[in-house]
Amino acid sequence: MTIATPVRPAIQLADLGPVAQLRAGRLPLRFAQLAIGLVLYGVSLALMVLGDIGLAPWDVLHSGVTRHLPITLGQAVVLFSFVVLLLWIPLREKPGIGTIANALVVGLSADATLALFDAPAAMPARIGLMVGGVLLCGLATALYIGAQFGRGPRDGLMTGLHRRTGLSLRLVRTALEGTVVALGLLLGGVLGLGTVVYALAIGPLAQLMLPWFLIDLPDPAERLGRD
């Protein structure tokens, strides 16, 4: 006789406002994971810049903007994060603590990393940086989303458009990234093999790693019972 092994229900991402995010508990672990994830996200962006064989779609746009404005790549990331947040308003998306932290920390971390390291000349090293950047970005994404402090600015734009238009997330994401890549190219941004690798790999990597770092929050009814 075979005894069926109970299947643990999948952990779900919470859709909470800033106050509810703080009241959800496990704050030391969640804040630490959020901070580590956002810093590593900026480092991953910098690794792809140092590899110089193609950037992530949004960073094609960021790199194009830096050719026309006296700002660093990290500053362009911060600037566009807040521009994108303005687009949340008509979509009625709710920013969380992680949303604002994402808008600030990722760009600062990228600039700090770029200030510390020089780009290598050897192609094997450049390929290693590109691949490492993509893998690290998948890990960083799982860390900061798993902390349950809300979506990043660009992720929120994607989910907001999905909710408002009824189009699939895949279609919305493809349309958004295609648009920002086209704008970035018009501005002289960096497109290459790394862009293709990132576009194909980041979704599966984040989906694979998110369950490893998703912090389970108490059920709202349980929190009310304790209050």
Rank of each mutant, 00 (worst) to 15 (best):
G54H: 09
P6E: 13
G42V: 08
H68D: 01
P28N: 13
L157I: 14
V172S: 04
I11G: 11
P70F: 03
A14F: 02
A24D: 06
G225Y: 01
T141E: 06
R126V: 09
L200V: 15
W212R: 08
V197D: 06
L50N: 00
Y144G: 11
P153V: 08
L34P: 04
L104W: 09
L108N: 05
L13A: 12
L61K: 00
T2L: 07
G107W: 03
L136W: 07
A32K: 07
A125R: 12
W58H: 05
A175D: 05
H62W: 02
A20F: 01
A24Y: 01
R30D: 15
P9I: 10
L139G: 12
V65D: 02
A221N: 05
R173D: 04
A140N: 08
L69Y: 03
D15V: 13
P6L: 12
G51H: 00
G188H: 08
I3A: 15
L34R: 08
R151F: 14
F117C: 04
L116G: 06
Y144T: 14
D216S: 13
L185H: 04
R8V: 14
V19D: 00
V197E: 07
L185V: 08
G188A: 07
I127Q: 09
I71A: 03
L139C: 13
A147M: 08
L91E: 11
R126E: 12
A110V: 11
T195E: 02
L34H: 10
S63Y: 07
L34N: 11
T165P: 10
L169A: 12
A35P: 01
G188P: 12
A175G: 13
P211C: 13
P18L: 15
A125Y: 04
P124T: 01
L34Q: 09
A56P: 03
D59Q: 03
A112K: 00
A140F: 11
Q33R: 04
G17C: 10
P6I: 03
V134F: 11
G98H: 01
P124V: 00
V78S: 06
R30P: 12
P28K: 10
T2N: 05
H162N: 12
E222H: 15
Q75P: 00
G128W: 03
G107L: 03
G150V: 05
Q148I: 02
L38P: 05
L73M: 12
A76W: 01
L136A: 11
F149I: 05
L171Y: 05
L136N: 13
G166V: 12
L27T: 02
G203S: 13
R26S: 14
G225Q: 12
F213G: 09
D118M: 03
V77R: 00
M48A: 02
G166H: 06
F117H: 01
T165W: 02
V181G: 04
L86S: 12
A103I: 11
C137R: 01
V197H: 07
M130S: 12
F31E: 09
I89G: 03
L161V: 15
V196Y: 08
G128F: 00
P28F: 09
L108Y: 13
L114N: 03
